[in-house]
Simulated scan of single mutants.
Amino acid sequence: MRTTETESTPDTSTAAGGSFAGPLAGVRVIDLSKILAGPYATMSLADLGAEVIKVEHPDGGDPTRAWGPPMVGADATYFHAANHSKKSVTIDLKSERGQAQVHELLAEADVLVENFRPGSSLQTIFDYKELSAKFPHLVILHISAYGDHGPMRDEPG
């Protein structure tokens, strides 16, 4: 598991020279989402002081890393805009080892955010009922572009 900072954390100093940790300081969020809705939500939590750990696939990470130009180094500014102030780890969510690593993270987390398509293999692997039974302390946010039911449920956002 490789860990990196996606970008520096925001300035938390106040005008008086003190320190402001934010109202969500001490809250740990595991971000399994990609593209925009989930990353934007977790970016907002990070901006309020939460520690956000973004989990990305080892082969390229979040697809928005390549959505440029403009670029900041090897990554698109789009990616940085929605993922600043987060830590980043690479984990293969479909492997047994990767799933065990995510469960280790969840054991110490307060919040999980994911935006797996309804009925996808990842939604099955990280099933809400199983996760909430194993981690009853965990707040789980599932984001779906068109909901889990209805004619467009399988469409990407």
Rank of each mutant, 00 (worst) to 15 (best):
T3A: 13
T9D: 06
S13K: 10
A15S: 14
G18M: 05
G18Q: 11
G18L: 04
A21Y: 02
A21M: 03
A25C: 08
A25I: 04
R28K: 12
V29P: 01
K34R: 14
L36D: 02
G38H: 00
Y40R: 05
A46W: 02
A46Q: 03
E51Y: 04
V55Q: 00
E56A: 09
H57A: 11
P58Q: 11
D59V: 08
W67I: 02
G68Y: 02
P70F: 10
G73Q: 07
A74V: 05
A74K: 13
A76P: 08
A81W: 07
A81S: 15
V89C: 04
T90V: 14
D92G: 11
L93A: 12
K94S: 09
S95C: 07
S95G: 09
R97A: 15
G98W: 09
Q99R: 15
V102Q: 08
H103D: 12
H103V: 10
E104M: 06
E104V: 08
A107E: 15
E108F: 01
A109I: 08
L112S: 01
V113N: 02
S121L: 13
T124I: 10
F126Q: 00
F126Y: 15
D127R: 05
K129N: 12
S132Y: 04
S132M: 08
A133Y: 02
I140P: 00
I143M: 14
Y146K: 03
H149F: 09
P151M: 10
